[in-house]
Nucleic acid binder design. Sequence first.
DNA 1: GTAGGGTTAG
Length: 618
Amino acid sequence: MNSISNPILQKLRLKNPKLVLLSQCSNIQDLKIIHAHMLRTHFFFDTFASSRIIAFCIDKPNFLTYAIKVFSQIYNPNIFIFNALIRGCSTSENPENSFHYYIQSQRIGLLPDNITHPFLVKACSKIESLKMGMQVHGQIIKHGFELDFYVQHALVYMYASLGDLMAAMFIFKRMGRFDVASWTCMIAGYHKFGDVESARELFDKMPDRNLVTWSTMISGYARNNRFDKAVEMFGILQDEGVVANEVVMVGVISSCAHLGALAVGEKAHEYVMRNGLALNVILGTAIVDMYARCGDVEKAIRVFKGLEEKDVLCWTALISGLAMHGYAMKALEYFSEMEKNGIFPRDITFTAVLKACSHGGLVEKGLEIFESMKRDHGVEPRLEHFGCMVDLLGRAGKLEEAEKFIHEMPVKPNAPIWGALLGACRIHRNVEVGERVGKILIQMKPEHSGYYVLLSNIYARTNKWKDVTVMRRLMKEKGVRKPPGYSLIEIDGKVHEFTIGDKTHPEIDKIERMWEVILQKIKVAGYIGNTGEALFDIDEEEKEDALHRHSEKLAIAYGIMKIRGPTPIRIVKNLRVCEECHTATKFISQVFEVELIVRDRNRFHHFRKGACSCMDYW
DNA sequence: GTAGGGTTAG
């Protein structure tokens, strides 16, 4: 580039370089021009000038390596430059590098200032090392910064988030003054450690709150899988007349996505529009994801199309949404459109695309894309991509091929990989491969109950009753339990939860009577009912009997009671739907002429006119 | 002599 005609360099001559650097530089090319100019004019050897380069690079993740290279050229770095590096590392992928720069600064005899330590403490929180945290705390005391307000905040958050609540409280209580951030740090720490109750207690007690406090609470609940609580908090926020910002709404909307609470999610979306919040990529992606996960793919596409800025995660959210619903061709269309838009796919993008292929049964296409990952896009396949491939082959009934694929993988297969093959054995009723895989899985994950159940079922099938007894005894001895299954249904903006054998719902008697009515009607239509031993169940709920209905049956019965007209009944289940319930639901969609949209842990099932969109493979 | 900090997000 001709340097004379470059507008940045023209300004550089006219103005103070530091101002130009701060205001004009927006990308690495510009930065390099300025850097080169500084080297040519020897201006770079001014510590203040070179420090501006570092400071510019440090808060942009892609520029960190550049900053470190620049740093290595500086003869006499001061504490400001070290602070910048420590800060940059503490928020990077490898926070432990900040310790390296701290030690280096000490070695050349620089004294830390009041800015240095908070970032080191932050790095300890991030790498989750209490041991390191205590060492840094020692340094803080040694250099006399333990009474610094910011240092105290960082320490409170660090100790609380790493579970040393005594230490966190000790520092918190001894702080000379408090502001909203002090309380918020403590709350954030509780949430990171997973103690949502203590976080809430403090939240209720604190004198005043700001939007960071609200979003800390809401996303804290969400991070700890208390999505119902997150939504509840949003209600309280509105009652108190607070207006949420984008960050708060990301927490609220992603909670709705997890709950499958479409009506609440729609309201939150309206709230965003009504209050004129900025529909940035993050919030936009959360909304797209919410509609897809709540079963309204069309709306997800509409919102997606209306977004001004779309990055790779945003495209991936849509593709993965389409994949979940089994719209494989549509997912692939968006994938190629994404590439046409110059967005480079990432590892998670390929997960979504490969899932689309496996849910849609596009074996050849999936193999093709898998091959292209590294070759054309430079993305190294990870375990989950191999898992998708096992799924893909398994679905097609190529069980031996899938098994061979696992054995030939360049990385060591983990339990979910074998689990994918096991799922395929369940669908294709392959006892031979199933037994082999089941044994491997039990060895790998002795605490996972599903694998014992599976293997014992396989033995029962092959009349190896001795082995069945062994399996059952092993399960008892190890005390393995299944995760409790639950189903959610949203009625009039309220989410109802059902678990197996749970009698706590206020309308439970009516619901159970409703189920009996449903059962009779679908039996007339040809439904045979519980066929006894459910083979090959991996992570389904406990075996059901007349008193213990699987949770989705209760949810469906409740839906039929409450939902009128053409509105589909939407259910969200935490486990995978079992074969029995799947068949029953198909009958229900036919007999009651109703559309049922069930999201299980694996994908969506759209039941319509006696058939399911998954084509009975899930 | 200058500059920089803590708590929230897909």
